[in-house]
Design a protein around this nucleic acid. Structure first.
Lengths: 365, 365
DNA sequence: CTGAAAGCGCTTACAG
DNA sequence: CTGAAAGCGCTTACAG
């Protein structure tokens, strides 16, 4: 009894025709009842039950390739992103979770196109995806060739696009406001000398964050000190280098009371550099990041940051995309508008009122 | 000239028949040359060129649903994993990157099935995936219903399975050896009183790590002190609670010189707890983690850990799966064997020789 | 209310 | 060496 030789080798999977035959009806009737189509109402309850049982007994699974061919819908959405070992990781994962959940809710599959960059590599996209997906979500595209993406048959939605693509809805966040509020919070705590570690030039996101920084200072009538805006990149390494160099060039000057960084990784880089010099966070210097990624909660002390509702944004992207797939003609209409999500301040231990006595930039060896 | 009204509305995508017609040949000839089939050799070079140009001009893209229906291959592999906001994140991302890269190399698509758990939720798998993928990679399944996965038409491969499924190749790492070597390293540095924060019971991975710990102590003829094995979970929180409780119960005792944790998160939890008590890492206590996740490099001090070659493992899973898809009859043969990858010690600043003077467990408030 | 037919776009034998 | 035909499994009009 336990050992039946299971010579399943090439047992063909059951088709709708098989199910129909077993239930004594046509394949079409089987299709209608199994898909709960409106047309199934015209099939008697008893017959439907018979069909269902036959399907179970035969272990029937619809062949989705055949269905897709007939309906011209793949029930699949694509996600294109640059997923490398770098900064984007946690960002991607959060958005991706939101996408997966929403896709599952709508019974859609998700397939991922992993790009190395948004240039030549992304140009392959239309060829890769046309036909195998019904629509595509572009994750943080810094698109260099906007034209090449305009496939004629596949609708797109983008999240955090560097520049909005014509006819493509974009989902983003109010990064400027996030930066603004963070600086306002620092000011409310008594900070005046606030350094800004800025991100790579030419990226909308980093420019917005810098703009929020400037606007907050201006609104509090604090004169902008351009030497306190320190260009760096997105990584901890660039921030370490940039901050060290700045300190080296300003020995004996007043130390900034706080550092507002373009993202969490650069904030970590600053914290490391400060620690090396024996400066304590937040006792001597407060530090703030952006994005509220994993690293913010892991850092010691934990990092104050600006949270973006990444999961919700991923889910919203799916909703928008499916709406557009259902009604492609609206593409150039109102649904192409951008959607801006609010951001939240997440205060943690890396921020405190400035020290009573001003700190001086130590002399570096 | 710039503004042509682009009324693309329902322009049908070009088919193979269209291409053939445009080139003055049959759809079959077009298929053969465009797919570089062996049969294309019988088509003259000139004709082939004509066909290719027609394909380009018509912007021809193969309809993969039709192709899949004809070939009975979806050119798609599935990945099933529990991807929540927890510990698995970084692990998943690394493996996933390896899978994506290997899949792209073989021109395969990847679709992700996001599960909430490996119980009832995973039982949906066969229904979900049968037919839409050619094979499935199970990521760290702690399978409770091994039978239900045995789809008759879909080959499986697992990574870090909790228990090897019959006929399913499993890719894993030598976790016991990793733990063993970590403890040997601590011993070589002079540590003798080594605490072990253990993971959830019943999981193969955590049991192997504990086994490596014990074997290393034994090999160095250090008597096992069972009170130094502290059961916790996988999260920083469980480790904080477990370590605090242990300290509370051992006031005035000798402090462990080192703590070997089942993973990086629990190591972080220990570091936080030690910091709260004013104990410094590694000056007073050394700490070691496992998995070498993101958090190990972010922690201050950086965490010594055991690295697993996750990307390579993801790539290998794809290779194995594709081999099995091509030749399903080998399924019960040698290809079902498990593959064990080696692990690496990654020494960082959280480890140092033990303090010259033994530390005492402080009295907790 | 029901089933037979046609068609989705491709590939794989199979005649010429 | 080449093309016409059949078929993959489903769904959608369309006759009865």
């Amino acid at each position: 009894m336990p050992s039946q030789p299971t010579k399943t080798k090439t047992k063909r999977a059951a088709t709708l025709a098989d199910v129909g035959r077993a239930a004594g009806v046509s394949a079409m009737a089987a299709s209608a009842t199994l898909n709960q189509a409106r047309t199934s109402s015209r099939i008697s309850g008893e017959t439907r039950e018979r069909i269902r049982q036959a399907a179970v007994k035969l272990n029937y699974r619809p062949n989705i390739a055949a269905r897709a061919l007939a309906t011209r819908r793949m029930q699949t959405i694509g996600v294109a992103a640059v997923v490398d070992g770098g900064e984007l990781n946690y960002y991607f994962l959060e958005v991706f979770n939101g996408i997966l959940a929403a896709a599952a809710k709508h019974e859609q599959n998700t397939t991922v196109f992993s790009l190395h960059n948004w240039g030549a590599d992304a140009a392959r996209l239309p060829g890769l995806c046309d036909g195998r997906i019904d629509g595509l979500i572009l994750l943080a595209p810094t698109w260099t060739a906007p034209e090449s993406v305009r496939s004629e048959h596949t609708p797109y939605v983008s999240i955090h696009a560097n520049s909005v693509l014509s006819g493509v809805a974009n989902i983003e966040t109010d990064e400027e406001q996030g930066a603004y509020e963070m600086i306002r919070l620092l000011i409310a705590q008594g900070h005046r000398r606030i350094m800004h570690i800025a991100g790579p030039e030419g990226l909308t996101g980093t420019e917005r964050r810098t703009r929020g920084y400037k606007r907050a200072l201006s609104s509090a009538r604090i004169a902008l000190d351009p030497s306190l805006i320190v260009p760096a990149g997105f990584s901890a390494g660039t921030a370490r280098t940039a901050l060290r160099q700045w300190l080296r060039h300003h020995p004996g000057h007043l130390l900034p009371q706080a550092i507002f960084c373009v993202n969490d990784s650069t904030a970590i880089g600053c914290m490391e550099t400060l620690a090396e010099l024996g400066l304590r966070v937040p006792d001597d210097v407060s530090v703030a990041g952006f994005d509220d990624t994993l690293v913010a909660r892991i850092a010691i002390p934990q990092l104050t940051s600006v949270r973006q509702p990444l999961r919700e944004m991923g889910g919203k992207a799916v909703d928008l995309l499916l709406a557009r797939i259902k009604n492609p003609n609206e593409a150039s209409g109102s649904s192409a508008k951008s959607l801006v999500f609010p951001v939240d301040l997440v205060p943690r231990a890396s921020m405190a009122p400035p020290p009573a006595v001003d700190r001086i930039v130590p002399v570096l060896r």
